[in-house]
Computed example of a mutant assay.
Amino acid sequence: MLNSPAHPPRVLGVIPARLASTRLPRKMLLDIAGEPMLAWVYRAARACTVLDSVLIATDSAEIMALAQRYGFPAVFTPEDCASGTDRVRAVAQAIPSDIYVNIQGDEPLLRPEHLQALLEPMLTPREDGQVVEVSTLATPCPPEQFDSPSAVKVVCARDGRALYFSRSPVPYDRDGLGQGVPPLKHLGLYAFRRDMLERFTTLPPSRLEATEKLEQLRLLEHGIDIWVAQTPFDSRGVDTEEDRQAVEAILYAKAAAAAGVAQP
């Protein structure tokens, strides 16, 4: 059972965290550069001043124990949540907020700047009067990742609305001149207004979603706009041991640079 705080936050960051990952078992608890992966994510999220509060949502007693050991706010959510978004919705049903941010727990390279950019479309009134109900984030796609199905690409309209997300290399540069639309890599952060979060999780899964295995396509196929903010800061999720080692190397390098230690 979740308890509603005395002063509900306007912007609540939620980190869905479960142990039953398929490709990298128990990855939320894995040590990366001397800290559990979840600790890196929580601390980066908490450093973002735009978020009023951040909590971990889990169905795991082990993750709850880790949160308590580190002093991170955490709540139990039902075991049958089908996705991280459903876990965020479980939090929303008990803790009122205007905006809920779904923060992936396997993104230890998360930066406060990611969250600031993500929330800007929702917190800045638009000149056309439209209210942004859902926002997400993208960054320039590195050339070596453009053909990779693991790197999700997004194509946007001029005003920033997402036109399509795909694991395929889009947009396709037919003439090979390199002068087309610069490709964007989608970063899996989402911000929802309360009513839209509830609506999203009650919509039936869509055909495009099932084909690409991309949950956000459910919104587009049902005619719901997703606004895409952009950031120059790339990230890398941890789904495999190779990912873990690569991210760990990056974090060690950052720590060394901050300490003024020369790299070999």
Score class of each variant (00 low, 15 high):
residue 109 L to Y: 04
residue 135 S to L: 06
residue 134 V to Q: 05
residue 99 I to T: 10
residue 104 Q to F: 13
residue 170 V to G: 07
residue 98 D to I: 08
residue 152 V to N: 06
residue 169 P to D: 09
residue 173 D to A: 02
residue 113 E to A: 14
residue 153 K to T: 01
residue 99 I to R: 04
residue 156 C to Y: 00
residue 135 S to C: 05
residue 171 P to Q: 00
residue 98 D to A: 13
residue 132 V to D: 06
residue 121 P to F: 02
residue 123 L to V: 06
residue 125 P to W: 01
residue 127 E to C: 10
residue 144 E to W: 11
residue 119 L to N: 11
residue 162 A to E: 10
residue 99 I to P: 06
residue 147 D to A: 15
residue 139 T to N: 10
residue 124 T to Y: 08
residue 170 V to A: 12
residue 157 A to W: 11
residue 149 P to W: 08
residue 99 I to H: 04
residue 118 L to Y: 07
residue 112 P to I: 01
residue 131 V to D: 13
residue 137 L to W: 03
residue 164 Y to V: 13
residue 114 H to T: 08
residue 106 D to V: 00
residue 126 R to A: 12
residue 171 P to N: 05
residue 99 I to C: 06
residue 151 A to R: 00
residue 143 P to Y: 07
residue 113 E to Y: 04
residue 115 L to W: 06
residue 154 V to F: 00
residue 173 D to M: 01
residue 138 A to F: 05
residue 155 V to A: 13
residue 137 L to S: 04
residue 166 S to G: 10
residue 167 R to N: 12
residue 164 Y to W: 15
residue 111 R to T: 12
residue 113 E to C: 01
residue 171 P to V: 02
residue 98 D to S: 13
residue 117 A to C: 12
residue 142 P to L: 02
residue 147 D to P: 08
residue 135 S to E: 06
residue 158 R to C: 11
residue 120 E to D: 13
residue 137 L to Q: 04
residue 126 R to H: 12
residue 131 V to T: 15
residue 136 T to E: 01
residue 161 R to I: 09
residue 134 V to I: 15
residue 171 P to K: 04
residue 100 Y to V: 00
residue 121 P to Q: 02
residue 147 D to N: 13
residue 165 F to M: 11
residue 121 P to K: 06
residue 167 R to D: 08
residue 152 V to Y: 07
residue 109 L to G: 03
residue 115 L to T: 05
residue 119 L to P: 11
residue 150 S to H: 13
residue 167 R to L: 08
residue 172 Y to F: 14
residue 134 V to H: 06
residue 156 C to P: 01
residue 137 L to A: 06
residue 115 L to S: 00
residue 173 D to R: 00
residue 154 V to T: 04
residue 166 S to W: 03
residue 140 P to F: 01
residue 115 L to D: 05
residue 124 T to D: 09
residue 101 V to Q: 00
residue 124 T to M: 10
residue 101 V to S: 01
residue 122 M to K: 06
residue 107 E to I: 14
residue 106 D to N: 09
residue 153 K to W: 06
residue 121 P to N: 01
residue 152 V to G: 04
residue 144 E to Q: 14
residue 119 L to A: 10
residue 152 V to I: 15
residue 173 D to K: 02
residue 139 T to K: 04
residue 160 G to I: 01
residue 107 E to T: 14
residue 166 S to V: 07
residue 99 I to Q: 05
residue 118 L to I: 09
residue 156 C to L: 10
residue 111 R to S: 12
residue 169 P to A: 14
